[in-house]
Each structure stands twice: as structure tokens, then as C-alpha cells.
Amino acid sequence: MTSSRDKGLSRIADILAKHPANRGSLIPVLQDIQQDFGYLSEEAVAELERRMGISANEIYGVATFYTQFRFSPPGEHTILSCQGTACHVRGGRQILTELEQRLGVTAGRTTADGKFDLERVACIGCCALAPVVAVDGKVHAQVTAKKIPSIISRYAGEGNFS
């Protein structure tokens, strides 16, 4: 137990060492921690408070302002449903509803089995191929509600989402 915690703390020290020791590094450091750990844990924030001399209060103030940061462990796969203007007028809302129905969670949540995060994103800039859904960074173009089950099952493994 202790050893994995220590390992985590030393990873944070490594991340801090890569950035200049100033306030402007706070967001890049938080980004790197999230990249490495998947989310910003209470322990990580406490460690940052100690090492950067910025209060946990202030760190949370900054982190919660930006939609990128999350405070609970992520699911295995992340599904982003684009709600940009082009996606919206081409049925993006229906796609999101279908995803919510199929996965049984609302946007912003993780499925009970921890397989999927479902998130809405303001725009991923693939407007010419709208509507789009991105799973783990792979963009699926011109998605229809009908294609959703097959997209999900591609990542669900043996899980049954049909």
C-alpha cells in the first residue's frame, strides 16, 4: 500500500522537475498528472500543495474552472460525443441520446462496470464530417444513431451492448 503511494508521489516529483518552478506551471503540471494518473486525486493535489506552495483550495479553484480536469478515476474507454454546431444541425443531439440510452449513463458519467466514460465535447473540429463521435481519440465520421451499437461493441469486448 505504502509503496504504491510512494511510487505515485515520486512520479509527481518527476513531473514537477520537468516544469519551471513558477505559478505559470500549475496548469501544465495538472495536465501531466492527469495524463499519468488518469485524474487528479486528493493525494496528488495535497502533494502539489506541499511542493508548489499553492493552497489546495486554490488548486481546486483553478482545476475545476477547466473542463479538462476530472477528480475521479476514468473509465477504460472515453467516448466523446461532439455537440458542435455542424454536429448539432446534423443530429448530434440524437447521437448523444442514443449513447446515453445504450450505455445507461448520462453525459459526464462513467458506466457502472467502469468500461466507458461518456462525455459531451463542444467541438473537435471535424465539422466537415459531422456528426462525429471520438472513442479514445479515434474519430468516427458521419455517425448515425444506428451505427452506435456497433461502435460501442467494438470497444466493449465481451460485454453485451447490443
Binding site: 505559470g24 496548469i27 477547466y66 473542463t67 479538462q68
Partner: peptide
């Protein structure tokens, strides 16, 4: 880090400053 308002000049600066 995902905030539309950071396209605004002064907000963008605040973000670079870590705020």
C-alpha cells in the same frame, strides 16, 4: 484545458499565468 472563454485575450493570459 478546455475553457471557451480563454479565447478572450485577458482570460487567455490568466490561463497562461496558471490562474
Amino acid at each position: 484545458a478546455g475553457a471557451f472563454v480563454c479565447g478572450e485575450e485577458t482570460a487567455l493570459i490568466a490561463s497562461i499565468e496558471g490562474r
